[in-house]
Each structure stands twice: as C-alpha cells, then as structure tokens.
C-alpha cells in the first residue's frame, strides 16, 4: 500500500505535512533536513525541487529556490541525495516542483527514479488535470506515484468533483487565492470555504496549505481537514537556523504540540 494511503487510514491526530526546498540552506543539507523532520514527528515530507520560474510561489520559497539553484542543485543531484533516504525516513515523501525540469529529465525516467528512491507522490502545480489524464497518469500509476491536485476557493464544485474522482492520497486545499507565503492566519471567509468543502463529502481526505505557519493556524485548519501543510514559515526557519537539526525538531514538535 502506498505510504500516503496508509497514513491517512491510520492517523489519529491532525496530519502535518512540511515543505522543504531541496539543497537548502546548503547544497548538502537535504538529508539532514529530512531526518530532522522525521525525528521531530512530521507526518509527510514535501521536498521542493527548485525551479528558476516558480510562478505559484511567493518570495520566501522563490528565494530558497534561487539559492539552491545557485549552489548547483539539479533533479539528478537530488535523486543522488535521496538514494538511501528509505534507510532512515519512513514517513511518506512527496516531490513538489514545476513540470519543465521533469520534462527535461524525461517523465518516465523521472518516475522510475522516484520509485527507486522511495518517493510516494508528486505535486506539480503547473501540470493541469487534462494534460495529466491524457499524457501522464498511466506512467505515474505504473510507478505507484500519486499525483496530488490543488483546489482553491475559486475552484467550482463541478471541477472539485472531477479532481476528487481522479485524485489518490489526498487533495491539496489552497487556503486562499494567493501564492505561497503571501498571507498568514485564517479569516472567517476562509473558514466558510473550509466548511463548504468539508460538506461536499469528497472521497479523498484534504490537507490545507498556504498561510499555515504555527500551531494555532495548524489546529484551526485541521478542524475542517485531515491536517495541514507548512511551507514558507519552515523555509524561513531553514534560512536562519544556526543549529539545523535541533531547530527543525523543535519546530515540528511545537506545531504537533509535543513540547
């Protein structure tokens, strides 16, 4: 069974998914970050594959992408760094990134590598549903990879139903009309949107992301979903950390309420 399915089936408390840019803050930090996240008790790890033109991302993640690229990170280097990942990391791992580097690596070769190192799913925000269905789904499924789709407050109910039908694992619910890291906190409008989606009785569980930065917003979001995703707030920590391992462990524990 895919690790993601198992996690959602067995979870007894809100699920925490944390995003970290690969090769950041330093080229060689990827595995240090993954191991620390796991040690802190994270439930899912989302590894950002850096891209020169990340249109869905706000300033914090853009900058981390640029730093990582400047330090020489590539898709090929990332797979090399993740080669022995499954010896220490047992939680589900997703790769998040933009479609162009995947296309250049070769879709099939990319999926094969993902399966080889133990990646469970992909988040490719600029790969639209129609393209996915016609060109990618068969290959992704052949390698046991879940493709995670996004929905936003503007996504129509009809389209949400389509996305639910094609999704596996979970649906990534973008909390507001924004790029990553643009807003923090949760407004009453957003709560209304969370409740509306909750009321749709989708077959897939949902994680809420964008604007989740601390335990309060994590818990708030988790009232209407299986859990939440933290990105920019964590990348900020990575950029400033003096003691990477311990600060990451402390961060995850504080969100999960284990401190």
């Amino acid at each position: 069974m895919n690790r993601i399915t198992k996690l959602f089936a067995e979870a007894t408390e809100p699920i925490l998914n944390v995003y970290a840019t690969a090769g950041y803050p330093n080229f060689g930090d990827t595995m240090t970050v993954l191991n620390a996240l796991q040690a802190g008790g994270v439930d899912i790890i989302e590894i950002g594959m850096p891209y020169s033109d990340p249109v869905a991302d706000g300033e914090t993640i853009q900058q981390s992408n640029q730093v990582s690229l400047d330090q020489g990170m590539t898709v090929a280097h990332l797979f090399e760094q993740l080669k022995d990942m499954r010896q220490t990391v047992s939680v589900p791992v997703l790769l998040m990134g933009y479609i162009n580097p995947v296309l250049q690596y070769g879709v099939e070769a990319f999926c094969q590598k993902c399966a080889e190192v133990g990646v469970d799913g992909l988040i490719l925000p600029d790969l639209p549903m129609a393209e996915y269905e016609s060109e990618y789904q068969a290959i992704f499924e052949q390698y046991g990879l879940y493709n995670i789709f996004l929905i936003t407050p503007q996504t129509t109910d009809a389209r949400i139903a389509q996305i639910d039908a094609i999704s596996k694992g979970f649906i990534y619910m973008v909390s507001s009309a924004s790029t990553t890291g643009a807003k923090t906190g949760i407004s009453s409008d957003q709560e209304t949107y969370f409740k509306r989606i909750e009321g749709m009785n989708l077959k897939n569980p949902r994680l809420i992301g964008f604007g989740i930065s601390d335990r309060a917003s994590f818990l708030k979001a988790s009232e209407s979903a299986a859990g939440a995703i933290i990105g920019s707030a964590f990348v900020k920590l990575l950029g400033q950390a003096k003691d990477l391992h311990n600060e990451i462990v402390g961060f995850v524990q504080s969100i999960k309420g284990k401190k």
């Binding site: 033109d53 249109v55 479609i99 162009n100 580097p101 995947v102 296309l103 690596y105």
Partner: peptide, 21 residues
C-alpha cells in the same frame, strides 16, 4: 531552444539540461 514549458505553454525554450530557464 528545446521543447519546454514556460509561462503556461509548451513551446521552444532556452534552458539548461536540468530544465532551468
């Protein structure tokens, strides 16, 4: 350029081997 995706469409694109623009 080689085929690639930028700004929402697939076209010819000047890019590195790794797909960075």
């Amino acid at each position: 350029g080689k085929p690639g995706v930028l700004h929402g469409s697939k076209s010819l694109l000047m890019q590195t081997e790794d797909g960075q623009v």
